[in-house]
Write a protein that binds this DNA or RNA. Structure first.
Length: 422
RNA sequence: GGAGUCGUGGCUGAGUGGUCGAAAGCGCGUCACUGCUAAUGACGUAGGGGUGUUAAAGCCCCUCCAGGGUUCGAAUCCCUGCGACUCCGCCA
């Protein structure tokens, strides 16, 4: 959510920002409703002031005088009720519109409609050269008893899967490495809820728009698609101290995504699944653009280092305006090389929000002058488990169908090669 | 699942129909004293909106979990929801 004062004073900027994101929002309507709301509010304030004055008089009056005053107040009340109704209606529309206004993308965000327009900013690593025809992760992992998609579908339905054997060792090894790597960067590990109430989804900007992408329980909670939701909710409605910043949290959680509207995409394998596990970097900092930008680069760097530890070739793209979410100011995606697809696939998504989320969450801190400010928030993947397994398996495959364990993971996996020898 | 208690400012916690946006303490800020990273004293210190101003002061409105209701008037009474705690039941 943006500050209404800002929207009033910089309507052109807000409109341009929405246009860059290719998001439809009627700012003029919002400003009109805002003006109406303000006038109704003033009207109501005056009536209430009168009521308060009369109330004081009643308190001090005696006997018949009191009776008369009370009777007069009963009349005033009926007049107020009408204004209150109007104000309530205006307020409702105002709030609805406010939730639709996107955050303004940074100047450095390129123009574009969708992910095809994202721009590569750097490339790292050597793509593996194979003296044989490389297999995809589905074939490799199935042959080595690391995954079972058939039974996954039988039991869980479309996109269901079981991880087994060496895949489990590899998944846990990645978790261990992530803990070690990110804790040295100052992150506090947390295991956070996936079953989360509506408020935190509103606060993080996944609702009201993203209803179709979320699973919902019969009791009204939603299943989070990322640990970011519960982690940001952690300090909702709280006031932090500036000295606590930057607050770096490493959140682990199961993640659930309906993937509505992407039925034909990535129908096979571990790239796009309905449930998975993820470690997520979530950061709160002071309300400063410089701090946000610095930390954004840092979170991106952290993730890059993680891929570098695993010696996985990747590139970084800066997402174009049309590929940004409602609240994001800027986003980098890290995409690792997938030999079977001869393309890079997203493994990490690093973004910052300024105070867009914290405003919705009412998450503030006291600054040096003792004033309350909305904090800034950022997040980036640390490691998304099944997807990164697929990347590793494909890049580290050998001609006989076995898979080398990345050097750095050998201590955690406990061996150097995964899979059955041919 | 049943019974009960409770939800107040950055925090702890008083307040059961008007003089309460709210005692006291903690924390924080300023000043004084003190010569040492202390103690003491004085004063100040909730958030938001509107109006106003170069800026402010001032003035007005709202907010005591949320939403309804009763009343001339609600932190205070009633209802619903959410949350916390206690006891019982149930299950590990």
């Amino acid at each position: 959510m943006l500050d209404i004062h800002f929207i009033r004073e910089h309507a052109d900027l807000v409109k341009a920002g929405a246009a860059k994101k290719h998001i439809e929002v009627d700012i003029d309507r919002l400003l009109k409703v805002d003006e109406e709301r303000k006038l109704l509010r003033q009207d109501l304030d005056e009536k209430r002031a009168e009521q308060n004055r009369a109330s004081g008089a009643i308190m001090r009056a005696e006997g018949g005088e009191k009776e008369k005053l009370i009777e007069a107040m009963q009349h005033l009340k009926t007049g107020m009720a009408e204004t209150e109704e109007k104000y309530k209606a205006a307020m409702e529309e105002w709030q609805k519109l406010m939730l639709l206004v996107p955050n303004i993308p940074d100047m450095t965000v390129p123009e574009g409609v969708d992910d095809a327009d994202n721009q590569e900013v750097r490339v790292w690593g050597e793509k593996p050269e194979f003296s044989f025809t490389p297999k995809d992760h589905v074939a490799l992992m199935t042959a080595n008893g690391m995954v079972d998609f058939e039974r996954g579908a039988k039991v869980a339905g479309f996109r269901g899967y079981y991880l087994k054997g060496d895949a489990v060792l590899l998944a846990n090894a990645l978790s261990q490495l992530a803990l070690k790597h990110f804790m040295t960067k100052g992150f506090e590990p947390m295991i956070v809820p996936s079953l989360v109430r509506r408020e935190a989804f509103m606060g993080t900007g996944y609702l009201p728009q993203g209803e179709d992408d979320l699973y919902k329980t019969q009791d009204g909670e939603y299943l989070a698609g990322t640990g970011e939701v519960a982690t940001m909710g952690y300090y909702q409605d709280e006031v932090l101290e500036a000295s606590e910043f930057p607050k770096k949290m490493l959140a682990y959680s199961p993640c659930f995504r309906r993937e509505a509207g992407s039925h034909s995409k990535d129908t096979k394998g571990l790239i796009r699944v309905h449930e998975f596990f993820k470690w997520e970097q979530v950061v709160l900092c002071e309300a400063s653009h410089t701090a946000s930008v610095t930390l954004h680069e840092e979170l991106t760097q952290n993730a890059e280092e993680f891929l570098q530890l695993l010696n996985l070739p990747y590139h970084v793209v800066v997402n174009c305006g049309g590929d940004l979410g409602l609240g994001q100011v800027k986003k980098y995606d890290l995409e690792a090389w997938m030999p079977s697809q001869q393309t890079y696939r997203e493994t990490h998504s690093s973004s910052y929000f300024h105070d867009f989320q914290t405003r919705r969450l009412n998450l503030r801190y006291r600054d040096q002058e003792g004033k309350l400010q909305f904090a800034h928030s950022l997040n980036n993947t640390a490691v998304a488990l099944p997807r990164l397994l697929a990347v590793i398996v494909e890049n580290y495959q050998q001609e006989d169908g076995t898979i080398r364990v990345p050097e750095v993971l050998i201590p955690y996996v406990g061996k150097e090669v995964m899979g059955h020898t041919a």
